[in-house]
Simulated scan of single mutants.
Amino acid sequence: MLVLSEQQTRDALPFAGLIDALAAMFSGDCVMPVRHHHDVSVPGEEDATLLLMPAWLPGAYIGVKLVSVFPGNTRRGLPAIFGSYLLSSGKTGELLAIVDGGELTARRTAAASALAARHLARADAKRLLVVGAGRLSQNLVAAHSAVRPIEEIAIWGRDRAKSEAVAGEARAAGFNARTVTDLEQAAREADIISCCTLSEAPLVRGAWLKPGTHLDLIGAFKPSMRETDDEAVTRATLFVDTREGALSEGGDLVQPIRAGLIGAEAIRADLAELVTGRDPGRRSPDEITLFKSVGAALEDLAGAILAYRNHGA
């Protein structure tokens, strides 16, 4: 049995291969039951979240991810997300590998956003704005740069020191990155806006979006959370990773639906429909596109299988 550390998991999941692995899994026969999502009280601070996400390819692989999200960890200098992934044989049930869940989650999440951007962002998109300075932000820089000719990267976060650290890491990796303090100005200039925060209130306003912008929303994974306002949702053509997940957990869509501003039918396509060509994706250069993801167990399974195979190779 393999046990892959954070670094080994990172090395085994290059974004080009991971994005393709997710595309194949979304177009395949993965079985994905409803995930378990539990609020866990933490005395004196915000509630934590416990996630259990199973999925399997019949006769090939079975996997389950166990993840905890503790927002209060940011004040302790710890990552908000911890987790492990258990990959087993789909023929015998034998445990094959334990993969670092935090790194797997960060990389497959960024890869899913990049997969969507491959279909939804303009082909000439070169300015990327990352809203948020947590663990996922660095992965988003690399993932989006794997599918679009990104030349300029702006990092905005509430904590300037963390934003500077993210930008510095991006520059060390060869990207042209800088921090910004004026979120509105940065959003008005961006071709792709990728939000990865734990915000409870809108950060990016629809009035700021220029024609042709692609908006990538990752962080608001509970109905009570928002990263954009209603105007952004009503101006954009809407896409999701999975309808079931986004309509039950994605606050950026759940809240305007509950308010009667849009209906569930406003979602034009999910990732499976995009990667199989059932939906053409972006239809015009000026179209504003919005992709809302809350995560799907098949993404973890795709990443875990790829990590297992690459490490073994």
Rank of each mutant, 00 (worst) to 15 (best):
M1N: 08
Q8V: 13
D11P: 14
I19A: 01
I19L: 03
A24G: 07
G28S: 09
C30R: 00
V31N: 00
P33F: 13
H38R: 13
V40W: 04
E45R: 14
E46L: 08
D47W: 08
T49L: 11
T49N: 07
L50Q: 01
L52I: 03
M53D: 03
M53N: 00
P54H: 02
A55S: 13
A55W: 08
P58I: 08
A60E: 14
K65S: 10
V67Q: 01
N73E: 03
R75P: 15
R76D: 08
L78W: 01
P79F: 06
L86H: 05
S89H: 09
K91R: 14
A97S: 09
L104Q: 00
R107A: 10
R108A: 01
T109S: 06
S113F: 08
S113A: 09
L115Y: 11
A116W: 05
A117W: 15
R122Q: 14
D124T: 15
N139F: 10
I150C: 00
I153P: 00
W156A: 08
A167R: 04
A172C: 13
R178I: 04
R178Y: 06
T179G: 08
V180P: 04
E184T: 14
A187C: 09
D191F: 09
S194Y: 12
E200I: 08
V204M: 05
L209T: 04
P211H: 05
L215F: 08
M225T: 04
F239I: 04
V240P: 01
G251R: 00
G251M: 11
P256C: 05
I262A: 01
A264M: 03
E265N: 07
R268Y: 09
A269D: 05
D286S: 15
E287G: 14
T289P: 12
L290W: 02
S293I: 05
E299V: 01
A302L: 12
A307N: 07
Y308T: 13
N310C: 14
